[in-house]
Design a protein around this nucleic acid. Structure first.
Lengths: 228, 228
DNA sequence: ACCTGAACACCGTTCAAGT
DNA sequence: ACCTGAACACCGTTCAAGT
């Protein structure tokens, strides 16, 4: 039985789908730099070079991750609410998906136009900015900026970069807070006074809510100002 | 003469400063993935392992790049204008520095609290959000988000990712525009109609100006709404 | 104090070959 | 159609050793 692993179970055939899925899992647990052709092959009990039947190169594998995530962003067919609500809605949907896969999130911005799913999200964002009445020459750039900014919210969340393990994480937060608190208040008064909030985000949900509001409010304001 | 290169010129001694500088140059011309311990060593006619005298590991070298860039962001000692003007000013100063080094820009967000220069920029941003009257619990998270969003503006600029060489770049733009224009307008009407602006940013200066305005206007709006 | 050389474990990728 | 094995050029990093 050449196609069975040590448990005698039939060895699952390799597929793009399966590889992308385990690549995302690997990024979730160990970070994007752990996503490696060789480690992926190992997890599937297969030679490293086997992956090249399914992906032209590693870049295409990463494209596959981005596409898989973007497919999870539902673009509502029959949305309700005015454009600011709808814009906030589509951006918030992206946030929800990417918060579940923070390490892979950084793959998104450069790949928004590289898959049907990414194009659907982009089309919706462009349409809403058009409805808002932004100057035509500003719509494309602003859409790409908004989508990029939403992704950067994940990386900028205070307390990301620290370990995931709870206990280990608490230790790291304590150390970091101590370091920031010990900085000279003469030079850095505000950093010192906000040391706690800079080290760890007490309320991530509100962090995301508030910053989404900042973006939508900013667009509303600029849409209301006729080209100045 | 053991310390002279083939031109007989005295070989410059290795230093953190010199290594960081050429690392940035390498990132500028060939991208961040070209910044490699071994290539850097080669450029300085030195064994790869020599770098480890000056940097504990590659991560520290990247920290050095981020710090070097952040040092170029001048934080005005005696700023004038109201807080929205000052906030826009500090964010715009970051943009100016990072536009000159777009490949290295992505190193910044995770390292804002890791150097005196980064801390100075962060302190100023925090101070301005405080002056704006944001709720205290939102200031730290919003500052990190703003600084991250400014960095993501560089990566999100339409037409980045394409080659730098002018002729080669024009070809790439044509191809990409053709691809987007050929998409089914039934599904993606707005993407198709904005194909041109999505492929290439006709006016980068205005792109940055406008999106900086979006951010500052958004903050102003949220500061004016008392916690709802 | 500063740099080298040998060595190690790990990468992505090609190509001819197997089934 | 799908996978393997050998091979290649390239990574980051250690450590004992040289000057």
């Amino acid at each position: 039985m050449p196609n069975a692993d040590k448990d005698g179970q039939p060895k699952a055939r390799l597929s793009r789908e399966a590889l992308v899925t385990s690549a995302i899992a690997l990024a979730d647990t160990e970070g994007l730099e752990a996503v490696t052709v060789r480690r992926l092959a190992q997890q599937h009990s297969v030679a490293p070079t086997s992956l090249y039947w399914h992906f032209r190169d590693k870049e295409r594998l990463l494209d596959g991750i981005a596409e898989h995530l973007l497919q999870q962003v539902e673009v509502p067919e029959h949305p309700d609410g005015d454009w600011p609500e709808q814009l906030r809605d589509i951006l918030a949907r992206i946030v929800v998906v990417l918060r579940a896969h923070p390490a892979a999130a950084q793959l998104i911005p450069t790949r928004l136009l590289a898959s049907p799913a990414g194009l659907a999200v982009t089309d919706r964002t462009l349409a809403l900015l058009k409805e808002a009445g932004l100057p035509a020459e500003r719509i494309a750039g602003t859409a790409m900026f908004l989508l990029g900014a939403v992704v950067s919210m994940i990386a900028a969340e205070p307390g990301r970069q620290l370990p995931q393990d709870k206990e280990e994480r608490e230790d790291a937060v304590r150390v970091k807070r101590a370091l920031l608190s010990a900085l000279p208040p003469r030079n850095l008064p505000v950093v010192v006074s906000f040391a706690d909030h800079l080290c760890d985000c007490a309320d991530p949900d509100t962090y995301y809510d508030f910053n989404l509001d900042v973006l939508v409010a900013g667009i509303a304001r600029m849409a209301a100002t006729p080209s100045r």
